[in-house]
Design a protein around this nucleic acid. Structure first.
Lengths: 158, 158
DNA sequence: GAAATTTGATTATGCGTTATATCCATGTTC
DNA sequence: GAACATGGATATAACGCATAATCAAATTTC
């Protein structure tokens, strides 16, 4: 899975008698839409977007990486990544230090503030997941997780 | 579920050792991204986008509706719906006839060409679903479908 | 029944996200 | 050292989606 030229579309199609309801992909989309809406709301309270959240998290978890590497991992085009990194730096959440071995490159690292915010964000997301998926039975929840993981594994080997 | 001011973001985060992998929502997103990519590819071969596809399908299934109703059902803002409808009409897939009872409104209906294309599209989508989800075991596939439906039911009652 | 209000469709416009092409500075290769 | 590759940045365009405002045709209100 990588960045591509597809664009998202918001079509919800809230009708009951529709062929789309015969498609698993449709239900997948609806589910993701629900999760996304709530997730974005949660992150907004920390002044984070999906992109800044994921970026911050990745920097926290893999320190001393350069921008290109991170952008690739995230599936974000390098030009678009610049603004994200600039924002995180401006907010004092990460630092950009020149790589001494390659003076073109930056090494990105989280500050203690960044670490703290990432921690807060992850906690908030866990609560959000609990709220959303906690309504499923424990078995269903585990099944869903397992099947989704398997699906990804199968598809990545295409 | 309705149209809101959230925007999608393309972050993929293809790393293996990441807290995000502990989130079901993350796997949901990855799965939808895979499905979406393939779906859009399939539709593109019929010169359809997700929006035009869903719109055409809805018009086929619920004839003689006015634009506003359809837009609401699809969760698309009315202004944005205009271009979609215009495209479908321009391509001869649907007709817009003035409602005699309310001369402001249009009644949208699929032409025989529209019906044929919708049919083709649905067939192509079924094949696409088969290709993607056919790799799961029949039980897993059924489970996934069931759990996703249930999730939506639970969430819609918030 | 005329004036005020609502409603279906449209236009204009702005914002956010993403992609592409180009550029600059530094590294690498030969 | 010339040619090329690479990390990062800028400029720009396309697309998706939202809001405000417009116009014409209804409906309501007095």
């Amino acid at each position: 899975m990588s960045a591509s030229d597809e664009h998202d579309c918001k079509v919800a199609l809230n009708t009951r008698a529709n062929v789309l309801h015969g498609f698993t992909g449709y239900h997948l989309r609806c589910a993701w839409q629900v999760v996304q809406a709530d997730l974005m709301h949660v992150l907004k309270s920390l002044d984070l977007r999906l992109a800044t959240y994921s970026t911050l998290l990745l920097i926290v978890e893999t320190p001393d990486q350069r921008q290109s590497t991170l952008a690739d991992t995230l599936g974000i085009e390098r030009p678009n990544f610049v603004a994200i990194v600039e924002e995180l730096e401006r907010r004092g959440l990460i630092t950009r230090t020149r790589d001494l071995d390659d003076r073109r490159a930056y090494c990105l690292n989280a500050t203690s503030e960044g670490l703290a915010l990432a921690d807060q964000a992850v906690k908030a997301c866990r609560a959000h997941e609990e709220k959303l998926f906690g309504q499923l039975s424990a078995e269903d929840r585990a099944q869903l997780d397992r099947i989704l993981r398997q699906f990804r594994t199968l598809e990545s080997g295409r």
